[in-house]
Nucleic acid binder design. Sequence first.
DNA 1: GTTAGCTTGTGAATCAATTCACAAGCCCCG
DNA 2: CGGGGCTTGTGAATTGATTCACAAGCTAAC
Lengths: 212, 212
Amino acid sequence: MKRIADSTVRRLSIYLRFLEDSLGEGNRTISSEELARRGGTTSAQVRKDLSFFGSFGKRGLGYPVPELTTALRDILGLGREWRVLIVGAGKIGTALAQYGGFRERGFQVVAVYDTDPAKVGTRWDGLAVRDIAQLEPDIREHAPEIAVLTIPGDDAQAIAERVVSAGVRAILNFAPVQLQLAPHVTVRNVNMAMELEGLSYALTNREKSDDD
Amino acid sequence: MKRIADSTVRRLSIYLRFLEDSLGEGNRTISSEELARRGGTTSAQVRKDLSFFGSFGKRGLGYPVPELTTALRDILGLGREWRVLIVGAGKIGTALAQYGGFRERGFQVVAVYDTDPAKVGTRWDGLAVRDIAQLEPDIREHAPEIAVLTIPGDDAQAIAERVVSAGVRAILNFAPVQLQLAPHVTVRNVNMAMELEGLSYALTNREKSDDD
DNA sequence: GTTAGCTTGTGAATCAATTCACAAGCCCCG
DNA sequence: CGGGGCTTGTGAATTGATTCACAAGCTAAC
C-alpha cells in the first residue's frame, strides 16, 4: 500500500463520524455527493480518498452505510482499545482526562502524571494523579500506546524523549513546540494559540478576499 | 498581496514562538537554518514563507531577531487585543476560559455561555457563565471578534449561525462537525478525537515505513 | 580595498494534492 | 430484457506547495 497523506486520513475521520450519525438514522446507502456536502469537500475527493483503500461502493447506488462504517473503523485502527497516558495535570490535562468522548471511541485514559506534589495523589473519576517519576516503570509495565502531553513548552521535549525511550510510539502534543523525535514516532500537534493566531491573521488581512 | 496558504500562516506562528524565546536569550540575529531546525522544516521553506511578506534579512548575516519578531506579530495581527467569547461551559470550555496563555498573547475571554441553568450564574476568576439567550444582545453590545465553540456536535451548526448573524466573523470550533457558513467567516477546527484517530491509523498501518 | 565565507531572496524544477471528465456498472421501470 | 438515469472508480490534467540551486549582497579580516 502506498503512503497515504495526512489530509486524507483526517477526512476519513470526518466521513466516519458522519457515517455513524447516518447509520443511527437508518440510512442504507449514501452517495459521495452527500458525504462531500457534510464533510466540506467535493465528491471527487471523497471517491479518491476511499479508492486508496478499496472499492466500497456500487455504481448508480452509492456506498452501503454499515459496510463503509466498518471498513473505515478498520482502516483507522479503531477495532480495538488504545491505552492513553496523559502527562500534565493542569487545566487542559484535567479536562481531557475527564472527557468522556475518548473512551467512547476506544481511547482509554489509563494514567495521569504531574510533577507538582500538591497534585500527586489526588483523584478524579477513580483516576489518580501519579508522580512523574513513575512514568518509565508504569510504561514498561502497562505498555500504553499513546502519550498526550499537556505540559509547558519548556518541558515537552524532555518528557517526549522519556516516554519514547520507555516505548511509546505515538504522541499527541499540546505544548507549543515542535518535538524532535526519531522518525518511527508519530506526533500530532494541537496548538490552540496557533489556531487563534490563524484567526487573527484572517481577520487582519481580509480586504481583497471579499469576492470568493 | 496574493493569497497565503494556511500552512504558511501556521509556520509563521511557530517561527514567532521561537523568536520570542530567542529574544529573551538576547540573540541579535538568527539564520533561516536555525529557525528551520527548531520549527521542524527546511531553511528554504523559512525563507520562502518570509519572502511572501517582505525582505527581512541581511545576506551573510541572517534575520535581526527583534525586528523579525515585531514584523511577524504585525503580520499575524497580534498588535492588538482580540475579544473572545466561549460557548459551552463543559470540561473543555471551562479549561480554556481559565487558561492564562490566551490573555498573554492578546486573546481576552470576555464571556462564557451555556444552556444549563445549573451552570448559568456560576463564576470562575471573575467571569460569570451567562445564559445562551444573552448571546445576540451581548455580541451586538460588545462586538467580540472571535467565538470559540466547545459544545456538542449536534448544537454546533445552529450556534455557529447565531454568532455569525450577530456579527462574529471568526470561529474556533471544537465540535466534531464541519460547519457550513458564509465564505466571509473564517473557521478553524480543533478535533481531538480526530487527532487520536490519526495516531491510531499510524500505529496500525506501519509495517513498511520503518525505513524512512 | 579586496578577498573569503556566509546567508538571503527567488525563479525554476520537482513533488504532492485536488479536480476534471468519462467509461463502466448498477438499478429500476416499462 | 432493453433503455434511461444515476453514481462509482480512476487515469489525466491542473492546481498548489515544497525544494533546489545559485546570483546577489553583507561582514569581517587583513
